[in-house]
Amino acid sequence: MDTAVTAKKKWWSGGHSPFNVSYGKLMMWYFLMSDAFTFGALLIAYGTIRFMSPSWPDPNVVFHSFPGMGHADLPLVFVSLMTFILIMSSVTMVLAVHAGKMRDRQAVVKWMAWTILGGAAFLACQAWEWTHLHESGAWWGRNPFLNVDGTQASTNFTNFFFTITGFHGLHVTSGVVLNIIILANVLKGTYEERGHYEMVEKVGLYWHFVDLVWVFVFTCFYLL
């Protein structure tokens, strides 16, 4: 896809992209950069409020459940599983991009299908977690959890948790939808006709970004 990079190439003299990528890919990068600022703003707002609060709920107390394990105290286990699913789906996405570069249509279909499955599995996990929290009384504007120091917590904790993981989940959802559209096009032979699979790369960038954001959400809400 890239043009040959020679040592003294004049990147800014016109006639070719100074970034050595196609317009679409560059715009995807710019979109992701702006999205990074959106998520950054949300997470920094969360950090500000947390720094402002005298005390805050302990994530290991709030997030301690696992589907089918009843009241067993299992902090971090479920969210680790979710993280693993998302990293894994990122890997299958790179493999799909890679297969696209090799013009191996069968392999693109296989890896895209696994990526979609991974995304759906992650969303299912999140749906379970939200349902579980909702059943224990947590929602926007409602916080049943106590602070670490035993005092009554404000609703800041649940408001930020549902807003930020919800916004991330929305990104995962639209990523899955985009992946399904691309997979349909691959099956239809659109990219075979076009001569390249660059669209797979573009949605790939978006999908990895969703994984990247989760890395930060995981740290901010579950580890710190």
Partner: peptide, 8 residues
């Protein structure tokens, strides 16, 4: 922002 939160 974190410094602001802390001072708050």
């Amino acid at each position: 922002f974190l410094a602001d939160g802390d001072s708050w």
